[in-house]
């Protein structure tokens, strides 16, 4: 049972790393911790649910439109964020407000009912030695891994990726080299929103959706980014896997309902342990 939990946690962790990747991109280049990230994930999940379940689109086409929707959502943030005098703390409050608005809009549009993708071919399982994983979990983990590798390559090989990394280190130095920090920031929000919504589509494959789940997903993203320490695919996957395995083991050994406790506990420990003195602003 423990082995099965570890295997499920591994697969889940890769999806978590995907959720953290979008958050990390916006945090590094946009210099903003997006507390509406969990709601972006949910919006993606709901778009995919409507397209697949409501209209009957094939999953890949629906996912493409979901990613586009997430990108548009992300692109709406920079004009708001740029107006803030103190981005670090006011940005948190602003995105908390955006999260609250999205939560209520989801409640209005989709009600509080839990949504799952029903039946069909999804529940099929694959035996991998002593453990059994559902095909859909493996598909989600594979898709998340592909996105992470693609994102890492994009950030380290392309000119845009180089620009994003330059702005994340020093916007003024990047501007001196002719890289527009405003444009890079916009690209980061757009890509971060797209990744979050895409991850929401993957979440829908493995779990249920509910409008109140946003903060929990934001915490997952925070935990992955804090534990990962660096915005590299490997570090994010390692952090996601640690979190996923810890959650699965907690669920098996202690009982259900421990998912939020594990993620929030990780964030709390990271912030409250000695040596984390941060006096950046007031």
């Amino acid at each position: 049972m423990v082995l099965q939990a570890v295997a499920s946690g591994l697969a889940l962790g890769v999806v978590y790393a995907g959720i953290g990747a979008g958050f990390s991109l916006i945090m590094a280049t946009g210099r903003l911790m997006n507390l509406a990230h969990g709601e972006f994930v949910l919006v993606g999940g709901y778009i995919l649910f409507v397209l697949c379940h409501g209209i009957g689109w094939p999953w890949p086409a629906a996912l493409a439109l979901t990613i586009l929707g997430g990108a548009l959502l992300g692109a709406a943030l920079p004009p708001l964020v740029r107006r803030l005098p103190r981005r670090e703390v006011d940005g948190l409050a602003l995105t908390l407000g955006v999260a609250f608005v999205l939560q209520n809009l989801l409640l209005l549009g989709a009600s509080a009912t839990y949504r799952v993708i029903p039946g069909g071919t999804w529940p099929q399982t694959i035996a991998l030695g002593p453990v059994t994983l559902s095909r859909v979990t493996l598909v989600a983990a594979g898709a998340a891994a592909a996105v992470l590798v693609g994102l890492d390559l994009w950030l380290h090989v392309s000119w845009t990726g180089l620009g994003l990394r330059a702005v994340s280190q020093s916007p003024s130095a990047a501007a001196g080299l002719g890289i527009s920090p405003a444009r890079m920031e916009w690209v980061a929000f757009l890509a971060g929103g797209a990744i979050a919504a895409g991850a929401g589509g993957l979440v829908l494959l493995t779990r249920f959706l509910s409008p109140g789940e946003g903060p929990a997903w934001t915490l997952v993203a925070l935990a992955v980014v804090f534990l990962g320490g660096r915005p590299r695919a490997g570090a994010l996957v390692a952090a996601g896997v640690v979190l996923g395995v810890a959650e699965s083991l907690a669920t098996v050994l202690v009982g259900g309902g421990w998912r939020e406790i594990v993620a929030s506990g990780c964030v709390l420990l990271w912030l409250l342990l000695p040596g984390r003195t941060v006096l950046a602003d007031a």
Partner: peptide, 29 residues
């Protein structure tokens, strides 16, 4: 949360956010 009093306002804010969800989970279980 007392160790968090050394943090910046934004980091302390994140700690309180996580703490509320942590306590909600603990109380629920």
């Amino acid at each position: 949360l007392i160790p968090g009093l050394r943090l910046s306002p934004s980091s302390f804010g994140l700690a309180t956010l996580a703490y509320a969800i942590f306590l909600k989970g603990l109380a629920g279980n």
